[in-house]
């Protein structure tokens, strides 16, 4: 029996208890999706339905993305009068999702006391695009996990193939420094050790080693594939920051709506800069992108700058002060005076 199966059983018990005892109004988890290598978010309100909850190697969605909208403050005084009280929400969280929740709590967009966090120590989740690429011409019909955590796939002609998990887990998982949730009200699974911090730096370093013209060419090539569908922004839990996103403003419209390379570049640069010291590197943006753009590259770079300057990593500790929301007299100021 796979480790996931055991976690799934305990997860259902936990959710059932929380819902039955009315300690949560809503429980957010995953359920099996219509396609192999996927799950789909599940909004549970009744303890009778916990059997739908799934835990498997395909639970990629960062469920923290739904929290800001569940706790959205009323728009005005009139709305405040009729608004229902904020719900109590239980949710399943991997290490990366927990970091996002921590960031949301720090930014006071989600109240900690309204959350019931069911953490799961995460061995890394499968990126369906990587898995399908590994299958080449085969069409998957079903996928499951074996005792070693590898992925068994049944393809169109009934053949069973095995994909090694480390070859098809999402890029962000390969660099995850805290796969075991740091805060939680319940923790399932055996704690998983974090990856070497250098892993996350390697790709950024390789990019930086290129000459300026090559870096620019790479970015332009990447951005030219962008179709401006906003999937990266919408899938990002912390990118619901502004009351009205700069990119959605029309009076005036700051950024053109189309795919002119200048507009696409601004879109991605604006997003990256808003992520400085806030991106929890869950990789949701990159997994959401239908065009295969590595949207993490820029955000990770500005995040690493913040770590180097202030020794701060987003989402790691509830009581830490995000550097961009804090002031200290001895803050590093080198970057201000550098030519």
């Amino acid at each position: 029996m796979s480790a996931s199966h055991e976690i799934e059983t305990r997860l259902r018990e936990t959710a059932e208890k929380l819902l039955r005892e009315k300690r949560v109004d809503l429980f957010l988890g995953y359920e099996k999706a219509s396609l192999p290598f996927r799950t789909t978010p599940l909004f549970l309100t009744s303890p009778e339905e916990v059997k739908r909850l799934a835990w498997n190697p395909f639970c990629t969605t960062n469920l923290a993305v739904y929290l800001p909208r569940l706790f959205k403050p009323p728009a005005d005084a009139r709305e405040a009068k009729t608004a229902p009280p904020p719900p109590t929400v239980g949710l399943v969280l991997k290490g990366c999702d927990t970091r996002s929740v921590v960031a949301l709590i720090q930014e006071r967009r989600v109240p900690r006391e309204k959350l019931m966090l069911v953490g799961v120590a995460c061995p890394g989740m499968v990126d369906w695009r990587k898995a399908e690429r590994a299958l080449r011409e085969h069409e998957p019909l079903g996928a499951g996990e074996d005792a070693q955590g590898n992925i068994h796939v049944v393809v169109e002609d009934g053949t069973e193939l095995t994909l090694r998990r480390e070859e098809i887990v999402a890029d962000a998982c390969l660099e995850c420094r805290s796969p075991t949730p740091s805060i939680h009200d319940a923790l399932l699974g055996t704690p998983v050790e974090g990856k070497d911090p250098e892993a996350a730096r390697q790709q950024t370093a390789a990019f930086e080693a290129k000459p300026l013209s090559a870096r620019w060419a790479h970015l332009q090539e990447t951005f030219s594939r962008c179709i401006r569908c906003n999937a990266c922004r919408q899938a990002c839990p912390v990118c619901s920051c502004c009351k009205e996103c700069l990119l959605d403003q029309t009076r005036p419209r700051w950024v053109g709506a189309g795919t002119d390379i200048s507009d696409v570049t601004i879109y991605h640069l604006v997003r990256a800069f808003h992520m400085a010291g806030r991106c929890t590197d869950c990789g949701a943006c990159a997994r959401a992108c239908p065009m295969g753009i590595d949207t993490r590259l820029l955000a990770r770079k500005v995040n690493q700058e913040v770590e180097d300057l202030y020794g701060y990593r987003p989402g790691e500790a509830l009581d830490a002060k995000p550097p961009l929301a804090d002031f200290a007299a001895d803050d590093s100021q080198d970057f201000l005076t550098e030519p």
């Binding site: 909004f43 569908c229 999937a231 899938a235």
Partner: peptide
């Protein structure tokens, strides 16, 4: 209402 709860409001479906 039930099915759209999880919709993120991106435009992937319609752009593709």
């Amino acid at each position: 209402g039930i099915l759209s709860q999880k919709c993120l409001g991106c435009g992937t479906c319609s752009f593709l």
